[in-house]
Each structure stands twice: as structure tokens, then as C-alpha cells.
């Protein structure tokens, strides 16, 4: 493992240099909301716009990998029908991604490269460099420590940890190493500083233990299989607005709809995909009117099963990283996985 140090005053310089050559997207501070101070990913045009002491952004960085609306084809309807593929990619640095969101990106990488590889995702992904950062704060609804998402061993090009007067930087890839060489003023790391990174990390991991599953995350698939008929699904879903917020803010929700848009001249158009969510009432509805998950409870249960069982078998891991965004932004506050999973566990004891 290659570990370097950037003194805090020099981080701005690093960022300034990156901005000259790259589009840099990073975490920015937004105003206070009913949820408290909020943070979001946006373009960083000056070093002081970047905020690295955030607890959790409102939206995960998935918009950079899977745009909310992504063109797949351009087409001409008349006089002669023609289509042209659209596969877009541009170099991008995302600065300030917490480990749980990196874990989600790793899962998306796997999902979009396996089976039928998805060139739109993969091409876009190739252009993206990820600079991770260890959290210094824990959002009130986060439980990533329970979901084995407190740290990741790969998926970042660089990984920063705030150890006080400086950031330690772990080099994850050659591309990341080259960025440091070319754009940053770094120094070597002492044994004490290395130890400090371990201490800082365990401190923040401990802070995330306040909200936790009461059982090992690896038990989720069997727990869920045994909870198919739990009354909890109906109880929770009776308040569900089918608004899909939980899907939208989730870093591991990647379902999409495919749609055609026609220009006003009626001869040209685009086919695009856009985020969709399994909580939407028509998600499984076909043209004849048959709806294969007609009730809110069926849709609500599907999401938890998908996270904790269906995708588990594909990923050998839960497709929930414990960011807590679904819990934070669900208006009727029924989406909290900690509450759902712990109550299911309680019920089967």
C-alpha cells in the first residue's frame, strides 16, 4: 500500500491544479434544510467550494455513473428510419466520496460489466477518477458500519483521511498515483502518522455504531427468506406514498425505464433511459393492465428483498451500504432499513 501525506494548506493547491486540467466534481455545502445542513455533488470551480467534512450528501454520486436521463440512441424517423448509438464519456474527477458510496460504485461496476456488459455505463466509468475521503462526521441515519461499508479496499484512485494537520492519501491505482505526482505536493508518511490514520478511522467507525443491525449483515438473505409473510410489510407499506424517493436517493438502485422523445419536427428524436424505481405503482405493470406487484406492500417488500437477498446472491454482499439516505428522505419515514431488518430479526427469534 502506497501512503502519502498532503499538508492541509497544500490541499487547495492540489485542487487548484486539478481544476486547471480536469472537470472536478465534489461535495458542496448547501443551505440548511429541515434535515439540517445539506450537502450535494456539484462542479468545483475554486478550491474553497469543496467541502470534505460532510456527513452524507443528499444524493449519492451515482448521477455521474448513471445519469438520471441518459441518451442511448439518436434516431431519424423520416424520410428514412435511421438510428445511431450514443455512448458518452468525458474525463471527470469526483472529489470526496465516502467509503459506503465507493462500495456502491464497486457494486454498480460489477452489475454493469457482468452478463450483458453495458457500454454506456462502462465507457462513462472509464473516464471517471474517484478520490475518496474517510468521513469525519456520521449522518443521523447512517449505519454503514453494520453493512461492511466503513472502508473499501478498492474502487478509489486516491483515498484521503483527515488526521488533523494533514491528509493521508492512499494510492489506489496508477492513475491516482500519477495525479498525485503531477498535481500535488506530497511528503512521506511516518509510522506515527500511519497509526493516527488507524486511530482516526476506528474512532469514526465507532461513531457509526449507534445505529446498527442487531445481527450480522450476512444473515440478511436467510432472514428475508423467512420473513416473506411478515405483517411488517403491510404495516410499513400502508404509509407508503409510492413516491420512489427511497429509490432515487439510493446509491445501489439502478433500475431504469427506456423512453422515446421526439423533436417538434416529428422526424428526429432520442431514445433515452431514465431512473426508475420499483416502488412506483406501475413499475411491474404491463400494457394489458396486469400489474405483477399491484400492492404497495408487494413493492415495498420487493425493495428490501432485492437489497438483502436477490442481489446478495449476485454480489455475495448486501446491495445496501448503510448510507441511510432512504431513511432520511422518506416522508412517512417508513424506509429505514435498520428498523425494518431489526424488527424482522426480532420477529423470527
Amino acid at each position: 500500500m502506497e501512503l502519502k501525506k498532503i499538508d492541509k494548506p497544500d490541499l487547495g493547491l492540489f485542487l487548484q491544479n486539478l481544476i486547471k486540467d480536469f472537470q472536478v466534481e465534489g461535495v458542496k455545502r448547501k443551505g440548511q434544510s429541515v434535515y439540517g445542513q445539506s450537502f450535494f455533488y456539484g462542479s468545483i470551480n475554486a478550491p474553497d467550494e469543496l467541502c470534505l467534512d460532510f456527513d452524507c450528501t443528499t444524493m449519492p454520486p451515482k448521477k455521474y455513473f448513471i445519469p438520471p436521463k441518459e441518451e442511448l440512441l439518436k434516431f431519424t424517423i423520416a424520410p428514412k428510419p435511421e438510428v445511431a448509438e450514443v455512448i458518452e464519456s468525458k474525463p471527470l474527477i469526483i472529489f470526496g466520496v465516502h467509503p459506503y458510496d465507493l462500495k456502491a460504485v464497486n457494486q454498480m461496476d460489477k452489475i454493469f460489466s457482468e452478463g450483458n456488459p453495458d457500454p454506456n455505463y462502462l465507457k462513462r466509468r472509464e473516464g471517471i477518477l474517484l478520490i475518496g475521503v474517510d468521513p469525519t462526521k456520521v449522518s443521523p441515519r447512517s449505519f454503514w458500519n453494520s453493512m461492511e461499508a466503513a472502508s473499501v479496499s478498492s474502487g478509489f484512485d486516491l483515498m484521503l483521511t483527515d488526521i488533523g494537520e494533514s491528509y493521508l492519501v492512499e494510492v489506489g491505482t496508477d492513475k491516482g498515483g500519477n495525479l498525485l505526482k503531477k498535481y500535488a505536493k506530497v511528503s512521506s508518511v511516518t509510522k506515527e502518522e500511519e497509526q493516527k490514520r488507524i486511530d482516526v478511522r476506528s474512532k469514526i467507525w465507532n461513531m457509526c455504531k449507534k445505529r446498527a443491525l442487531n445481527f450480522p449483515m450476512r444473515e440478511l438473505p436467510s432472514l428475508l427468506v423467512n420473513s416473506l409473510n411478515s405483517p411488517l410489510w403491510d404495516e410499513k407499506a400502508s404509509k407508503c406514498l409510492s413516491c420512489v424517493t427511497c429509490n432515487m436517493v439510493c446509491p445501489t438502485c439502478y433500475c431504469f425505464d427506456v423512453w422515446d422523445d421526439v423533436e417538434l419536427d416529428l422526424t428526429h428524436g432520442q431514445r433515452y433511459r431514465r431512473w426508475d424505481g420499483c416502488l412506483a405503482s406501475d413499475f411491474a405493470k404491463v400494457a394489458t393492465g396486469e400489474n405483477f406487484r399491484e400492492t404497495r406492500a408487494a413493492r415495498y417488500r420487493h425493495r428490501f428483498l432485492r437489497k438483502g437477498q436477490y442481489l446478495f446472491s449476485k454480489l455475495n454482499d448486501a446491495a445496501c451500504v448503510g448510507c441511510g439516505r432512504c431513511a432520511a428522505y422518506c416522508l412517512p419515514d417508513i424506509a429505514d432499513p435498520v428498523d425494518v431488518f431489526n424488527r424482522l430479526k426480532e420477529a423470527v427469534k
Binding site: 431504469f256 425505464d257 426508475d276 411491474a284
Partner: peptide, 11 residues
């Protein structure tokens, strides 16, 4: 319901 045919879109 199907959108992608490729095992991705989830429908």
C-alpha cells in the same frame, strides 16, 4: 414488463 432485455433495468 421489460425494458432492456439485458437483465439490467429491473422491471
Amino acid at each position: 414488463r421489460m425494458k432492456c432485455g439485458l437483465g439490467k433495468c429491473g422491471h
